[in-house]
Write a protein that binds this DNA or RNA. Structure first.
Length: 747
DNA sequence: GTTAGAAACAATCCT
DNA sequence: TGTTTCTAAC
């Protein structure tokens, strides 16, 4: 019996049809990852294809990681040569090798949304645009959409002729792109755009990759935008062995440029395409699937599909309406508690899904006081926190001196007494001389206008230069630690001794850990490599399967995941579908929301609870909302719990109140629940915040460190729930470090 | 040049 | 409500 016997006939067809274009329409829970991984295996084992010629492309690192793991376990030999990665890391990898052909340096930096905004602000100032009337964000939005559509600044300018507002946007776009180039930086969209540009302009490079990727598989194809479509099209042009997998009913990324036509018109672009439908769902109960089907049936213009399952009917969908959003959170917390203790379930099987990130706050507060372990996905990215960005800016400056943004960010952090006036003068000088900002700083002595401020600049420049010379032999994590030492960044925070500062310090420790982990995981770690990884991770990538905590995230983040027990919270008209789509006169916007609802329902395997509140606070104002129209699209026969909803809230908020008293008398959460600086990963377990680490060593003891070797403990200082340990190492001198991170062993 | 406190303002969703 | 920008005082 072969491994392919476990697949159903449609899945088998998808696996065995290896040559030419293939479109796999894979309904929710129909086992598409299984198909893709088996297909890779089949190509290698049965068709004798060299794994080197196979590429699988996804949207998130998490999906790529999972696929890699599953392929590895299926394929006996050579699976590591298969190129499995995301669109963005694929492009970065290609650009790091060849972008010099487009006039960029191969050590370009990648700008995140924050960086883009700062840059745009600067440009608006330069072009004397009143940002009260034209917002930076709207320019960035326009530019991003243009890039998604592969519209260059030049073409945008041509198209804008005669339209005052568009001409202004065109000017901004041109200026923005020029600034990026000057800084040797690419924004997120550029990663795709520049790769396409490279392929279009350089036949040699294109041919190399076409030869390499003879078999291409694309996951979540309904999410591709026009630029990504062209990227794939170019790559697949020579061998035409392109297999795309997607589900038009799960297309939920129009706002970031996803073009649903890519999947709907696949057969027109590839007339010889084989179309295969996967319609058997292996995930959900009959009731859940019926609910999902009846909701999505209200959309027009879908590809015909009939999702079915041979699973039993299962429980009814539990629907509850509450007076307030607080009661909603109370109920869900109590219900999770009940399910976990009664049914022997575990927290890890529960997920709360909502439309907007802001909704996580109430649940977070509730879970902290109730001692329910949880993890929030999304919101502010770890790498977007101020303290992390500051330190990364140091690394970027050391790595790429042409990144003006990074230099300007840290030139006065910590305070060096260099203010706006001086910076303005340096800037002017840089422009006059055609230098980068950093080069101008190096030449500060030559700038007549800045006078004695040059004295303040020189130490900074010296510091960066010294660090540059040390990059090679220090490595990323030690470089980072030396920056922290030399600049006194952490020391300054320690002096502040507030909860917020403490949380920032913990984040910095986390960053060091990530640097160490990077160095350990990579064969030849480099500073650029680390910065690249950092730029491309999404919050969802850190979600570990099998962990025992409740997961909270937006419906968008939940795509591709499944949970036994799902709560869809805030199902109110105005929240979901969102206010903006309700007032929009484009009916397709509601359809996209409906698809999002479909995605949400189909995440559930056995238990689905839908909740809403009659009133909730939004930005300080109380809003009154009706039950979501999507709930009304579910046949009443599938719903349970509604009749009880009038008494139930009181009852549950009381029982939840009990657990609150219990918890609060015993445990005092270390973080203020309002503290947005907290590292969510670190403190997810409310209970763990009480565990103070115990040290097996004391002052004077001999200890051993993973990297630094042996040494003697000089001093131990208590700080929060951690200890700061000073150790005199035999080889590398005296170092200060946190006990929880350093993992010192007594010898 | 730096800081804190007041005022203004905002509208999803994300790699 | 939470965050960013402006203003005034040190």
């Amino acid at each position: 019996m072969s491994m392919y016997d476990n697949l159903n006939s449609m899945q088998q067809e998808a696996v065995f049809h290896t040559e030419g274009p293939v479109l796999i329409l894979a309904g929710a829970g129909s086992g598409k990852t299984r198909v893709l991984t088996h297909r890779a295996s089949y190509l290698i084992e049965e068709k004798g294809v060299n794994p080197w010629h196979i590429m699988a492309i996804t949207f998130t690192n998490k999906a790529a990681g999972e696929m890699r793991e599953r392929i590895d376990s299926l394929v006996g030999f050579g699976s590591e040569s298969i190129w499995v990665s995301t669109f963005h890391s694929t492009c970065v990898r290609i650009l790091r090798r060849h972008i010099d052909r487009l006039g960029y340096d191969t050590n370009f930096t990648i700008y995140d949304a924050d960086d883009q905004k700062i840059l745009m602000k600067d440009i608006c100032k330069r072009l004397q645009i009143d940002t009260k009337i034209y917002k930076e964000k709207s320019f960035l939005g326009v530019i991003s959409s243009a890039k998604d559509e592969l519209i260059s600044p030049e073409e945008f300018t041509l198209r804008a002729a005669g339209d005052f507002a568009k001409e202004k946007q065109a000017a901004v776009y041109r200026e923005y792109q020029a600034a990026l180039r000057k800084n040797n930086a690419l924004d997120f969209d550029d990663l795709i755009v520049k790769t396409v540009e490279l392929f279009q302009n350089d036949a040699e490079v294109l041919d190399y990759y076409q030869e390499r990727f003879r078999y291409i598989m694309v996951d979540e194809y309904q999410d591709t935008d026009t630029a990504q479509f062209h990227l794939i099209k170019l790559l697949a042009e020579k061998y035409r062995n392109l297999c795309v997998v997607g589900d038009d009913d799960q297309s939920i990324y129009k706002f970031r440029g996803a073009n649903i036509k890519n999947i709907l018109n696949f057969e027109e672009i590839y007339p010889d395409a084989r179309v295969i439908k996967l319609e058997q769902n292996y995930r959900s109960t009959q009731n859940i699937l019926n609910a999902a089907n009846s909701v999505i049936a209200n959309n027009v213009g879908r590809k015909a599909k009939a999702l079915w399952t041979d699973h039993p009917e299962g429980e009814k969908i539990n629907f509850q309406q509450f007076e307030t959003a607080y009661e909603e959170a109370d109920y869900i917390a109590a219900d999770i508690r009940k399910k976990v203790s009664e049914n022997g379930g575990h927290y890890g099987g529960c997920a709360i899904l909502y439309r907007t990130n802001a909704q996580s706050r109430l649940f977070e507060e509730k879970f902290v006081v109730s001692n329910i372990p949880y993890k929030i996905v999304g919101g502010i990215n770890f790498y977007a926190r101020k303290e992390i960005k500051d330190l990364l800016a140091y690394l970027k400056t050391i790595d790429n001196g042409r990144d003006d943004l990074a230099v300007r960010r840290i030139i006065n952090v910590p305070k060096r007494g260099i203010g706006a006036t001086t910076l303005g003068r340096v800037q002017t000088y840089a422009e006059e001389q055609g230098l980068s900002f950093y080069q101008a700083l190096r030449a500060a002595d030559e700038i007549s206008t800045i006078g004695k401020a040059g004295m303040k600049i020189r130490p900074f420049v010296n510091f960066i230069q010294t660090m540059r010379s040390k990059v090679e032999y220090l490595g990323v994590s030690k470089l980072l630690q030396e920056i922290i030492e030399e600049t006194g960044y952490v020391a300054e925070l320690e002096a502040e001794s507030s909860d917020e500062a403490q949380a920032r310090i913990e984040n910095i420790d986390e960053l060091i850990s990530k640097a160490v982990a990077y160095e350990e995981s990579e064969e030849s770690p480099t500073l650029s490599g680390f910065l690249e990884m950092v730029a491309l991770v999404a919050d969802i990538d850190n979600l570990q399967e099998g962990s025992d905590y409740v997961v909270l995230m937006t419906l968008h983040s939940a795509k591709g995941l499944e949970f036994p027990n799902v709560y869809l919270a805030g199902m109110e008209d105005g929240m979901f579908p969102s206010y903006i789509t309700i007032i929009s006169d484009d009916p397709s916007e509601i359809e996209e929301e409906r698809r999002l609802c479909y995605v949400g329902i189909t995440r559930a395997m056995t238990d689905l609870t839908i909740t809403c509140a009659k009133q909730r606070m939004i930005r300080g104002e109380t809003q009154y909302n009706k039950v979501s129209r999507f709930v009304k699209e579910i046949p009443e026969t599938l719903l349970g719990g509604m009749a009880r909803s009038r008494q139930k809230p009181k009852e549950t908020s009381e029982s939840a109140g009990q657990s609150f008293r219990q918890a609060s008398s015993k445990v005092k959460p270390i973080f203020s629940t309002r503290n947005s600086y907290q590292s969510r990963q670190a403190n997810s377990f409310a209970s763990s915040s009480t565990d103070k680490i115990t040290l097996e060593y004391g002052s004077g003891d001999r200890v051993k460190h993973m990297k630094f070797g042996e040494g003697t403990v000089v001093q131990i200082v208590e700080g929060g729930r951690d200890y700061e340990v000073t150790v005199a190492f035999d080889r590398v001198g005296t170092k200060k470090m946190f006990a929880s991170f350093a993992k010192l062993k007594k010898v």
